[in-house]
């Protein structure tokens, strides 16, 4: 286990180094840091002196090392547009994204488990077939199109739900702006959460159905049934519990997909989260915010994946030796 742990952590560190190298290269090649701090009136000689003083003439690797050291202390540079530390800007937008992701996960968990189990138990029932058919169509509709259709039907057509923004917010301790505590905020959450879960749901329904079908074939399920246990108990305690491990591992790996679809959903609903901020930064050519987002999401992602892998290795010893998949 120790060797596995070391191997996974080394790999995570290596991936982070590569991400920071990519980010740093972009920063180097696109923006000129001198232009950010000096005005037009600064003479060429002064510029050169400043350049030398800031270490901008140093070798590439040395500057990269400095970038890394600062990044480790949480300093990812300043955003050109917001004139604030980039990490602060990103963290300020994080609550919106997290709330959207949390409501979506809630929807996915509450719906995919019963539907997945049902479709595995009664694969030939017309309702199960209907769910599977809908999930194929759901996978084929891009998330932004689902979002647009929802807006058209429920906001423009029926006028029931708001189509953009987060609505009325309540500031909690630590400056967390939450939409969970006002009815207006909750109303604004409905459409984005449905849109985002429309793409994640089919995936999980199919996954749970496939795993559940496999488990239901095993001998211990037959034995549990033969013992005369209640059918519900056999399904949930004996069957479903054993599908959880693969579902959680695959689910953890879907984080990247979720982040990408969050970017799309936030763009459609003008949801003021990290994804919309990223796209705005791209439009404004705010390179240092783009790089900060890249490093931030990369770090988040590598951490989650490594933890998922480690937990999996802890539970399933086969993985430690053979590597994943």
């Amino acid at each position: 286990m120790f060797a596995f742990f070391i191997r996974r952590v080394t790999q995570a560190v290596f991936v982070m180094l590569v991400i920071s190298l990519i980010g740093f290269t972009i920063k180097q090649s696109v923006g000129d840091p001198l232009r950010e701090i000096t005005g037009i009136s600064v003479s060429a000689a002064e510029r050169d002196a400043l350049r030398e003083k800031l270490g901008l003439n140093d070798p590439f690797l040395l500057q990269w090392g400095r970038f890394l050291a600062r990044a480790l202390q949480g300093d990812l540079g300043n955003s050109f547009y917001f004139k604030r530390p980039a990490l602060q800007v990103i963290l300020g937008k994080a609550p919106a994204t997290l709330e959207l992701v949390f409501s979506t996960s809630l929807l996915v968990v509450l719906l995919s488990i019963p539907i997945g189990i049902y479709a595995a138990v009664r694969p030939r029932a017309w309702l199960a077939r209907f769910f599977m058919g809908v999930s194929i169509v759901g996978v084929s509709i891009p998330v932004f199109l689902t979002a647009i259709l929802l807006i058209y039907v429920f906001s423009v057509g029926l006028g029931w739900l708001p189509s953009f923004g987060r609505g009325e917010l309540v500031t909690l301790f630590g400056g967390w702006q939450s939409g969970y505590f006002t009815s207006d905020g909750l109303k604004h959450l409905i459409l984005p959460s449905i849109a985002l879960s429309s793409i994640m749901l089919p995936l999980f329904i199919r996954l749970i159905r496939a795993e559940m079908k496999e488990v239901l074939e095993t001998d211990y399920i037959k034995y549990a049934r033969a013992k005369g246990l209640k059918p519900g108990r056999v399904l949930l305690v004996h069957g479903f519990k054993n599908t959880l491990l693969p579902v959680i591992t695959v689910g953890g790996v879907q984080l990247g997909t979720l982040i990408a679809f969050t970017i799309l959903t936030e763009t459609v609903f003008q949801w003021q989260g990290m994804g919309a901020m990223f796209i705005e930064a791209v439009d404004r050519a705010d390179t240092s915010l783009i790089v900060a987002y890249l490093v931030f999401v990369g770090a988040l992602f590598v951490t989650v994946n490594t933890v998922v892998d480690l937990v999996y290795g802890l539970v399933n010893p086969m993985i430690r030796i053979a590597g994943r998949r």
Partner: peptide, 16 residues
């Protein structure tokens, strides 16, 4: 995930 990679590279190319 392929979407993430594509979005990032799109953003980087546009910045570049």
């Amino acid at each position: 995930s392929t979407y993430m990679v594509a979005i990032f590279f799109g953003a980087l190319f546009q910045a570049a």
